[in-house]
Write a protein that binds this DNA or RNA. Sequence first.
DNA 1: TCCCTAACTTAGTAACGAAAGT
DNA 2: ACTTTCGTTACTAAGTTAGGGA
Length: 667
Amino acid sequence: MSTLNDFLLVLSAEVQRTLGLWDLRKKTHSQTRRRVCFASDPFLNGETPPRIKDEPDDDGFYASPKEDSKPLKRPREDDDADYKPKKIKTEDIKKAKKRKQEEEEVMWEEERYPEGIKWKFLEHKGPVFAPPYEPLPENVKFYYDGKVMKLSTKAEEVATFFAKMLDHEYTTKEIFRKNFFKDWRKEMTSEEKSTITSLSKCDFTHMSQYFKAQTEARKQMSKEEKQKIKEENERLLKEYGYCVMDNHKERIANFKIEPPGLFRGRGNHPKMGMLKRRIMPEDIIINCSKDSKVPPPPPGHKWKEVRHDNKVTWLVSWTENIQGSIKYIMLNPSSRIKGEKDWQKYETARRLKKCVDKIRNQYREDWKSKEMKVRQRAVALYFIDKLALRAGNEKEEGETADTVGCCSLRVEHIKLHPELDGQEYVVEFDFLGKDSIRYYNKVPVEKRVFKNLQLFMENKQPEDDLFDRLNTSILNKHLQDLMEGLTAKVFRTYNASITLQQQLKELTNPDDNIPAKILSYNRANRAVAILCNHQRAPPKTFEKSMMNLQSKIDAKKEQLADARRELKSAKADAKVRRDEKSKKAVESKKKAVQRIEEQLMKLEVQATDREENKQIALSTSKLNYLDPRISVAWCKKWGIPIEKIYNKTQREKFAWAIDMAEEDYEF
DNA sequence: TCCCTAACTTAGTAACGAAAGT
DNA sequence: ACTTTCGTTACTAAGTTAGGGA
């Protein structure tokens, strides 16, 4: 348990740091560069992350551009001099770095793509549509008011959506049922409409049982049948799961069109239960290049539109009927276009690192401004920076769940405590954020912030906006003036990454073995997840698995007690006998005790780790906020295999970073 | 300035499937 | 061999931001 306490101590130190003493690290190092590049970042004078695969794959595609996209024009010759990413002598690295610094003073003469152009060539096979509805067998009945009723195909299909969710809590919710029933009736024939007038008289249980039996049957399928399905899926993936973008064969993220069903939404969503309609080819806009093979629509159908817009990255889009928003088919995170964007995101965050001090001083000054708008802006920015809150756009009432971010905070979401638990000027936050995840935090703030908040709340109702002179647009415009490319969300990225780097420095013990170091990594990761409020529902089996683990620990403890007793008697025995044999026995018993102690420790650490993770999700920060180069560098520094930190998918997504970062990388 | 929309990132959960226990 | 546990993947909702037009 002591490890847990250590962690909490470190964490609170981190929190303390966040509260006032902004500790900035020294300047970042440049990273080694390889020949094959992403398009260069306008702010970076050509520092470019590399591509990993440089060999053509089975289909003859190159991961990196070969002929048609010219490599960036280098300001100097000896093109390949720093093209040996691994195992270079220190002097070579130093030399390379020096040369690179010189290079960076010379601007690149040519961009790979002109401003806003995302690709030159794009070819794909179009989307995969949801399988058509298969009517229920005759013997599966639907009952209305206790009597069997045969539904029309359309009405039946929608009924099955409800039947499949019967076990779910939300089919009991008033709004869900109301929305569902309204939309369901739209699909009914006029006779059905006149008969079925009340949802509570509908009996879906037989249908529900049928689907459960189907699921069961699927589980019981023979190996061969399962294999067949697997192969079919692979065929589909091979055929539709990839596209060609500028000489690269790239994986598509979501090539399957979302099937029809009932909209759930998260939290208390006013539209829950509405029918998400089936998407037809006639709804689909195809985007590809003019000189590519345009995917044909399914026989007897037409696309809504085929366009050739190389200023966007999507391949397919359609308009969804619940919110009327557009959905897209885009590329996988491992693709060039996503990786490059990801890399740029972290580079922007690193630029923020260079000027964050100035910005912090600025907003502190602004707390004193004569202008209300400026004060509000400054306090909001302080929250965004210190607490990693999201920007908080305004939302249309009645269209979505009632959630807020920083700029949309309402008076009812905070409580001011001039003094609380021995701390002065405490702000208590309690609101629902993105995905209706609760944000609850008690934070001591500076006096000026506190006084400002009191001012902002004067003469307001609980449901009034806290920052009534502010919105995300005003805030982001201001940020843009402070630093090119700066927006509210950059603070989240910056603070997450810098926290990871700092926590890794503090928590990693050089003498630890690999599992202990990985535990430290997870804790650093966890500190970030807590900062960003990344939560999850405790796993359904959490309590049970925790109890299992506890009983294992108890068993181990007993075992330890036994071993200790045996050691004691062996010692007593040895004292009497004073011979070699009994001495040896003592030694081996000692070892046994030690071994069991270790095992017990391990189990306890595991329990702690799991308990700490109960409601915290690490994956979101890992995937979206932590500069992967920090993790890669850490792994290299401590000899941790990268597979221990990133699984296969993650390694693919972060391929650029794995290849780019050396052990001395500084965020 | 406001308002709206398109495009893109970030988010949690359910389903799946492999590995670990029994 | 069967069950449980656990990591991974699929899915799609819910944010942010830029930019255009009134």
